[in-house]
Design a protein around this nucleic acid. Structure first.
Length: 375
DNA sequence: AAAACGGGGAG
DNA sequence: CTCCCAGTTTT
């Protein structure tokens, strides 16, 4: 083998154990397994790319009732296809499926080109793993025919990636090209020529129901004697997760302005954008801005020591929050854009998560006549 | 709240 | 090559 990982077992022994496990514990009555056809397998594979089996089943049945053949799908309006997809998500896949059906009708005589991975991959929405799955699942209804070698029909979906990285303790995120190459090499090595459809369903079922993302059932796993991750004691460590890019950090000062009754001043955020419509503490980038605001709006402000800073993480940046307690007599004038929040009788407001956390932290001290933790 | 999922596409 | 995306589920 070209790549770095020695198989945990000889291919024949791996297949034997997996198929024995599959015969007892695998899924044998999925709707796309009978009747089995390249078209039905294809539709199921596209649906399964984004959704669990249990969710897919009713969608698949409805889809097959409305579009029993590839030709029916190709000739349908796109709106009908999308309508049956509603709720599954990733609607680009429905559009690709529809488009690919039209290509197959026009260029491949109304059949999927199941002769080669390359021909399938030329269709929109079909990548290498889906192509392998379609070939494998539709090829050996009768187990002896075909010149097909398993290497032309290997699959490498998330379940298989997880299983193989654990069995071989493969480090690195599977999305990395080098890691993915190793995984493809192993996947092809293990894929048999006989019982190809069963093997393919088996390796997916194995990952989905035994070698699960969390709490894998290692104690009853047929490979626990050869699994490198199990031997290392922490199968959960594999596969490694996608490296998260360093998030930029922004800083903000949150004013915790309290009146003599211990109430906290909150303002509502603009309706869209970050924390749109939620209630939050007044925020400032600089202490000077905070001072200006206090001079403008507050009677007899007294600054207390800042509370310890903490971070709140968003999808695209990290916010370093420094809470600044200030006590005061009252605000100057009437303000419509805020409320005095009574921690003892909290009004039902939508609060930004870190604000909620800050408010809940000071609740126990609310009877203190000079609130704001001192240090 | 964050990660996972499989393929496509931009840079 | 790397990065990003689409939508929903799971942890």
């Amino acid at each position: 083998m070209a790549d770095m990982f020695t198989p945990c077992l000889a291919a024949e022994e791996f297949q034997r154990r997996l198929l024995t496990w599959f015969d007892q514990y695998g899924r044998h009555d999925l709707p796309w397994q009978s009747p089995r056809s390249a078209y039905r397998v294809w539709v199921s594979e596209i649906m399964l790319q984004q959704t669990q089996v249990a969710t897919v089943i009713p969608y698949f049945k409805r889809f097959m009732t409305r579009f029993p053949t590839l030709e029916a799908l190709a000739n349908a309006p796109q709106d009908d296809v999308l309508h049956l997809w509603t709720g599954l998500g990733y609607y680009a896949r429905a559009r690709n499926l529809h488009k690919a059906a039209q290509v197959a009708l026009a260029s491949h005589g109304g059949e999927l080109p199941t002769d080669s991975v390359e021909a399938l991959m030329a269709l929109p929405g079909i990548g290498r793993s889906t192509a392998g799955a379609i070939i494998a699942q539709s090829s050996d209804k009768h187990s002896s025919d075909k010149q097909r070698s398993g290497q032309q029909a290997a699959i490498l979906d998330g379940n298989v990636k997880r299983s193989l990285t654990r069995l071989h303790a493969i480090a690195g995120w599977p999305g990395k090209p080098a890691v993915e190459r190793s995984l493809w090499t192993l996947a092809e090595y293990f894929t048999p020529n006989t019982r190809l459809a069963d093997y393919t369903q088996a390796i997916m079922d194995f990952g989905a129901t035994l070698c699960k993302r969390s709490k894998p059932d290692c104690l009853i796993c047929p490979f626990n004697d050869v699994c490198c991750a199990y031997a290392q004691g922490e199968p959960q460590r594999f596969p490694e997760s996608k490296p998260k890019k360093a998030l930029p950090t922004r800083e903000t000062i949150m004013l915790m302005l309290r009146d003599r009754q211990g109430r906290v001043w909150l303002e509502q955020r603009p309706p869209c954008g970050l924390w749109g419509g939620l209630w939050s503490l007044p925020q400032f980038e600089q202490h000077s801005e905070l001072n200006d605001w206090l001079a403008d709006h507050v009677t007899s402000p007294e600054r207390h020591a800042p509370l310890p800073s903490f971070t709140h993480t968003f999808s695209h940046f990290r916010l370093l929050i420094t809470p600044q307690p200030v006590s005061c007599d009252r605000l100057n004038g009437v303000r419509e854009d805020g409320v005095w929040y009574d921690v003892d009788e909290p009004p039902t407001l939508g609060l930004a998560a870190p604000v909620k956390s800050l408010l809940s932290q000071l609740a126990p001290f609310s009877l203190d006549p000079t609130p704001g933790p001192s240090r």
